[in-house]
Amino acid sequence: MVRAFIRGLDWIVRQFTHGRHALHHQTILKIGLVIVSLFILVTVLANWSWTSGWFLPYNPVYYRSAPRLQGPSLQHPMGTDQLQRDVFSRVLAGGKAPIIVAFGAMALSMLVGSLLGWISGFTGGVLDRSLSLTMDAIYSFPSMILAIVLIAMLHPGLAPMIFSVGFVYIPTYFRVTRAKVLQVRETTYIEAARAVGVSSTRIVLRHIAPNTVNAIMAVSSFNLADAILTVAALSFLGFGLPAPAPDWGFDIQNGQGFLQSGFWWLITFPGLMIIILALGFGLVGEGISDLVNPKRKRKKT
């Protein structure tokens, strides 16, 4: 499993550094998908089976036979922490909260944002204007701060995290959807459909909805990447899941107390996981937006 993962990474680097045609956008999409699915697989297996021990080398939550605060070694490739746990096992299992919250938040914001966007774009008038203004207001506010304040007001847990992170992305979907709806609404075939007497619902479902889906797809992968970072930041600031659940952001915060004493491995490895996963989502987004929007494709000179 680890080897496959390292091969995957190797491959990414090769793709980026060799040859002109290596950067073909389909490849980017594929690399991203490989990373993301690998992470999901590892996280699911690790969280499913940490007591049975066939996937994770050690129990990531409670283990007291390893040395305390020891650097990377053969038995513990990423070292051990202050509670004598294996950092490698914790790192493998630590993606649960970021992945669940990122997808949950995306689903929430996509649903609410797009729905409002459709309604707004389709009805127009005062409703459209006030909704747009509200969304612009939220959009202009630093999303990280908004998410932190929201989560701080709620109890910790997966659902509140999904709500907080999801809330800040609603305007993104709203804007994308509304813009598409307006664009499509102006096109002649909608005018024609309306002239023929097709009902509004039918127009939305048949003509407008499919046209907005592509745009939303691209936006959502970028949002996933961003959400991973936001969730990690929330956990880092202490608004994540209760202990002892393995969680990258929480583990980094924990490592901060040991930074001065030089225990670098407590911080380094969970951070690398966040980077690679966020990068994976970013690449998927990059790939999709190139598929959806061929104009973005770089001109060959």
Binding site: L229, I252, I275
Partner: peptide
């Protein structure tokens, strides 16, 4: 990559 870099992690790594 800079997109995917958690800012707090970068800060801590620079400190280390």
């Amino acid at each position: 990559g800079s997109f995917a870099m958690p800012l707090f992690w970068l800060g801590l790594m620079l400190q280390i």
